[in-house]
Nucleic acid binder design. Structure first.
Lengths: 337, 337
DNA sequence: GTTGGTGCTGAAAAGGATTGCAAGAACTTC
DNA sequence: GAAGTTCTTGCAATCCTTTTCAGCACCAAC
């Protein structure tokens, strides 16, 4: 039988109201009583009943987080960031996983909406309309996705691609292949865009391959195409796909980066552990998780205007899978101009 | 403003009690009224307020899950298993991550205990005493750990090691190294035990290396020791460590499995993707997660006796990192006997 | 000596559901 | 036809907090 506010009130010789105030709005009670009440509460190990509090305040002190796939290390980072920020503000978080299936998103969203004060929706795959429906009654902050009028935290994918292309161009690559991710991925769209712009500006050829599933076997499947299309460098939608590329290239005995350079995106922990270690665009997903929660809490607090969009910088992390472009073989010569 | 039970009652022309019963104990109400009430409830989109229900029933319909590290794909599988089973029973789950730091476990456990009906505690690193303290008021089911008197779901690590050793012995290996994991890991203890028993029975030498941190770099660090100790096969505490071993062996130009065989444990997705693909002991963590929730729910339901221990089978998955033992080099000859 | 604050406290009303109790209706059964 | 069951249903209490409102005491100012 847990200790209630009534027990504390009795033990301290005051009313329940005073106990409640002493603990949640200390300014309103006489310093003497306040100290006594707090001491008694601590001594008895009193913890307010969250259900009772929630019933009257209408708040649950819970947040929701929806990610496409918990097994993807990228989202593990998001989860940790969200958890950290939530815990700091005394919120708990419910986590749900859509298993990369867009059709489960609306249902999960609705189910979660009932029991949380706000939701962080990470990399949703559903069309805009489905998302805005729930956003109407429960505050939702988007991650890795932008929908007009909705608060969002994104990372600057396009700039990451700019850095990647400039890096490759500086190494002499004149023809780059992109292994595209899911059509429904907003990030993929951003990356394609960034690639198009920078390759265009630098006069580098861009070959679009895919779309492929954002998994290891997607990369495996794409490797042969990348090799055949005459590119000397491949940029993958994400690191997992890049790892698949490396695996298949290794199996075919293709030297990386001597014959072909490979570049990933996300910088998951595994990327630093391969041989050769993967050059990749680091995206601050942990930080993005924190930022999303901060934005959500600001929205909930409802005190003044809130920054409703943050775009976090990305950064190229050069490791060992990118190198100087091979000399054009005789016959395939001068592709520039 | 959400629709309450009062709204439904008014719309259906009955009392709140009848609405409550029609939805939660349908047998107690007349089929006619029941149908009408249910229809109205559905039409109005009525969802009982969980806080209000929890206040009176004393139940939260939430479960807690504590894992050492969400970024570890092994625990991602646990999470998915737990989620699936919980959702099926209409429970939501709070997830917490200790970041492999045993000292945060008791605090998290206590914090979680207040807001859930039961907790699944996966691979705890704390000493028994710390764990039993919380177990007193909140039902706790352990995973990958046994504490006398506490319900638990485990996997048969010892038998997995038996399969591993028999496999290696059949390939002609007579000297096996084990790269040990954390001292505080119960699974590690079980694995060591299984190895000792089976190598003893088969007359195979067992070299104990470590303890090493259960990370990629732990494996990297262990590789040179394994090579130097004269073993022709290495069993790693888990797949991540095995991947580290492979990486370092590859960097040193040591042929796997020709010169030395490598065997992991857990069968994380990454293991099938390396070159060569990792031979490993598969542990059914997804299934274990489901089982732990089933046990917890049975405990909560409090209807009759409950199986308080399940031990799930493990299975050797042979891939490409284990092969026939190399011929003993001249001079190092006859090690048997 | 009244009036008007200010500070602190307690009584009581929510908040939305569940559930024990009792009453009325409908049926048996003698 | 009366008494006793069995079904249904509604009333009202209860869960634990927060929060409004009013009251009391005390002090300053006129």
């Amino acid at each position: 039988m847990p200790v209630t506010i009534k027990d504390v009130a009795a033990a301290a010789g005051v009313s329940q109201s005073t106990v409640s105030r002493a603990l949640s709005t200390p300014d309103l009670v006489n310093p003497g009583t306040r100290a006594r009440v707090q001491a008694v509460a601590r001594e008895l190990g009193y913890q307010p009943n969250r259900a009772a509090r929630g019933l009257i305040t209408g708040r649950t002190a819970n947040l929701g987080l929806i990610v496409p796939d918990l097994a993807n290390p990228l989202f593990a980072a998001v989860v940790k960031g969200v958890q950290a920020a939530a815990r700091a503000a005394d919120y708990s978080v419910f986590i749900a996983d859509t298993d990369e299936d867009a059709s489960t998103e609306p249902g999960l969203l609705r189910a979660l909406a009932k029991q949380v004060d706000g939701i962080v929706l990470c990399s949703p795959r559903s069309p805009d309309a489905e998302l805005t429906e729930v956003g109407a009654d429960t505050p939702v902050v988007l991650m890795n996705r932008q929908v007009p009028g909705y608060p969002a935290v994104t990372v600057d994918n396009a700039d990451g691609m700019r850095q990647a292309v400039e890096h490759l161009a500086a190494l002499g690559h004149r023809r780059i292949a992109y292994v595209a991710g899911p059509r429904s991925s907003w990030s993929n769209g951003q990356r394609e865009h960034g690639l198009r712009v920078t390759t265009g500006a630098l006069g580098v050829d861009l070959v679009h391959l895919g779309h492929f599933p954002p998994r290891f076997d997607g990369g495996v499947a794409a490797a042969d195409l990348a090799l055949a299309c005459g590119a000397t460098a491949v940029v993958a939608y994400n690191d997992i796909v890049a790892l698949g590329l490396l695996s298949r290239l290794g199996a075919r005995g293709v030297a990386v980066p001597d014959r072909i350079s490979v570049l990933g995106c996300d910088d998951i922990p595994m990327s630093a552990m391969t041989h050769p270690a993967l050059t990749t665009v680091s995206v601050p997903q942990h930080e993005a998780g924190r930022a999303a929660v901060a934005m959500l809490l600001a929205l909930l607090a409802d005190t003044g205007p809130v920054t409703t969009h943050r775009d976090l910088p990305t950064q190229l992390t050069v490791r060992a899978t990118t190198g100087v472009a091979p000399d054009p073989e005789p016959g395939t010569a001068d592709r520039s101009r």
